[in-house]
Structure formats: C-alpha cells, structure tokens
Design a protein around this nucleic acid. Sequence first.
DNA 1: TAGTGGTCTAGACCACCTT
DNA 2: AGGTGGTCTAGACCACTAG
Lengths: 238, 238
Amino acid sequence: MRLAEYEGKPLYEVVSDTIRRRILDRVYRPGMTLPSEYQLGEELGVSQGTVRKALNDLVTDRILFRRQGLGTFVSEQSEDRSRCLFFNIMQDDGGAMSPVGRTLTFGQYAANAEEHRKLGLRPRDEVYRIKRLRSLGEEPILVERLSVACSKFPNLTRDLPDYMYRLYQIEYGITVSKTQERVKAIGVPQYEAKLLGMTCGEPCLSIDRIALTIDRQPVEWRRSICRSDLWHYACERT
Amino acid sequence: MRLAEYEGKPLYEVVSDTIRRRILDRVYRPGMTLPSEYQLGEELGVSQGTVRKALNDLVTDRILFRRQGLGTFVSEQSEDRSRCLFFNIMQDDGGAMSPVGRTLTFGQYAANAEEHRKLGLRPRDEVYRIKRLRSLGEEPILVERLSVACSKFPNLTRDLPDYMYRLYQIEYGITVSKTQERVKAIGVPQYEAKLLGMTCGEPCLSIDRIALTIDRQPVEWRRSICRSDLWHYACERT
DNA sequence: TAGTGGTCTAGACCACCTT
DNA sequence: AGGTGGTCTAGACCACTAG
C-alpha cells in the first residue's frame, strides 16, 4: 500500500493516522512491538525519517512508547498510568495514594438527559450506573458515581477492578487517552456524608470527569465526592 | 563558538541549552526574532536539522514559538497566555472569564515559615504580601493572597496589573513557565465571606499555587479563596 | 553479532510572508 | 524575489539490547 492519496496533509500525518487507525482496528494491539522504522517506511513508501516523525508524534500523545535497542510498542493502560494520570487526589503530606474501591450499587438504566449530553448517546440508549466507595486502609476517601453506555461495554458486571481504564482496554479494546475534569466545592450530601464519616454539609470536593478515547469520543462520565480535610486535588501546568 | 565541549549530551541538547541560557541572560529577549535555523547552525557549528530539533524542543516547552515564513520568536507572557494557562477558573456555563483585580492590602514583611518553605528563601529574607479581590463586573469571585521575595522584585508597588506574570517578565526579566496547584474545599473564612458576599462557612475552593521560572525556581506563592457556586476549577489531562 | 532506536548531516523542494 | 520555517529524503554512525 503506497500513500498516493495525499489530501493536502503532510506525509508524516498520513503515516501517523494510518498507525492510529491500525491501533483502533486492533491490527496493532496494546503491548505489541511495531515493525521497525525502516520496515514501516518501506511498506508505506516513505523514508525512515518521515516514519520517525510520525512515531514521535504518537509517542508524544502516549499512544506509543519506545525503548532504544528494542523497538516501538503500543502503550498499555498500566495500573500505574491509570493511577498517576487519572487519579489526581493526593495526600496533603505529599504521598501518592492507591485507594481500593468497593462497589456499592450497580445497575442498568435508561440514560437521563445529563448522561445523553455528556456521553453523546443516541435516543433510547441505556447506561450502566456504578456507585463505589474508595478507601485507603480503613479510611474512606471518596464516593464515585460512574456512567457508561451499555452498547460500548456489553455485559459489564458489578465485579470491577480498582482502575477501570485497563479493563476498558483489555476487555473492550477502548483506550482512554484524555480526561476533562471540573472541580467544585460543595457541602457533602447526606448519603456521601454517612459513607465518608463526615457531617452533612461539611465542605468537600466534587470532581466531574469525562474520559475520552484516542479519537476524542466520550466513553465514561464520573462524578466523585471527595473528602478534602487531609486530601487535595493536584494540577500542574506548563 | 564551536560546540566541541560535548559532556556526553546529544548535540541538540547542547544547542537548546545554549539558547535557553541566552534567553535567561536576556541576549534574546521576549518578542525578539531569533537568527534563522541556518544562521544558528553555522554559528554553533551544527547542521540546520540539529538546530531544528533543538528549537522544536523549546517550542514544546513554550519558550519559543514559530511562524512559518516569518521566523522563530521568544515567547512573551501575553495577557492571553497568563489568563488561559494560569487562570483555571471557568464559569459553569463554559464561558471563559477575565476578572479584574483590586488591591486590598499591600505590604513588606519578614517572611514566615511557610513562605520560606514554598519560595525557597534564605534566612531574614523579606516578602511583599498582596491581597486582592477579583470580580467579573459587579460580581466578586475570589480573594487572592500573594507572596513574592522582595529581593527578586525590588520596589514593587501596590498599583498592580490584573495579570502579574507579564509584569514579572517585562519589569524584572523573570518568566513564569510552570505552575503547581493544590485545590481543596474549605468553609469560607469570615474575612473572605464578607468580600465575596457569602455566608461564613459556606463551601468554597482554596487554590494554592507555586509559580516556577524556566529554570524551576519558585518565585511566587499564591492562595486564592474562590466562590464555587457558579464557577469551577477546570483541568485536562492527556 | 545483528537488529533496533537515537543522533546527525547535507541537500532538496515546498508554503508562507515581506518588500 | 528573497528569506523564513515546514517537509522529506538518503545515508551515516552511535548506543543499546538480545541471543
């Protein structure tokens, strides 16, 4: 396959789009080694330098990673990455945290208006709703409510891992590559107050998150109610 | 000047370090056009491709920017950048906001323990402390307390612009390139409650920020108390 | 030793902007 | 027209990893 179809795009974008497509089509799967830069260049009819630029762009997006002398690989949604990139709650003394989750409720429902809007659903789509409590040791930290489209995650069960993005990738071939969060301060509602050992109305963080795939489709909506006495939400910008 | 001194670093890093150094030394100043890739390559004894990689890395760090056909420029701390990158409060309906600030108090003090820790000060260093109220139209939104070392910002006055990072750059040659923030939910204290038109103890956001220069030195500590009824803190991750 | 990614070069042509 | 960055190539050598 030669890349004669140009579309005005630079060649390296055509190359990176091609590889992106192959990952979405699971031709290249998480953990797999890609062909070498020279092989890809020969196959696609471009030079190694052009392949290199395309691969580097995908590495920047964390879709691939490289190891010198070994090869170029499709990124996996490691637990570590799930935790570091998508769990932004930190202990005030600076320590990272790995809270374990316990499922409180699990069910299948007709999507409401907010779920339609946030997940971009079609009429009459259904969602799984999951409510979980996350704790560190005996200490409860946050309650999260999670909605996903049933059509995208068929046969989900209430027995769920602590970090869901790895499950989405391994079981459903859906890779979360970006999240958008909104953080507000609210008075803790009664239900969450009881679970978190707080008094109703005490200030807590409300974290509203949309998770997007590598082609920018929203796949999960999550709202967390989080204690804010010993924990905080962290963010760096450059 | 030829770059014979190698130090084990790749050439393009030696080149980007050289340019970084020249910006810190104000040989290249914000807004200035850099010599062309070929000129830099000739001056430093490397090829245009190597200069290109070095410049691209600095563009990624937002230290430079390019315009095709025009040249490569040293980034300025534009108001737009100050607002977009370092002001992460958004209206709930999605609109961006440009709140104007009014200085409430301004003074010079011996630094306390927390300021010493957060700003990396030396014994007996002094700080300017500034308290400001930011509003959108008639609507007060947040109160911020700001500390900077007097030694770094001599002769600062209480007459301050809305976006300080541009002032730091133009008047003091200090460029903020990174911020670290911690967000918590607290009950609004009495002083801020009065200014923000809230009732004491109502939930609000507390945003604690350290601003770092391009060589990673902390230069400003800021703590904002922000209404959270119609505004939220926004964060995207990839 | 052979294969991979990492760096570097030299030269070409294009797209864009100014004068 | 002339200069800039943007893309692309072909080829070289290095550093790292495996078997």
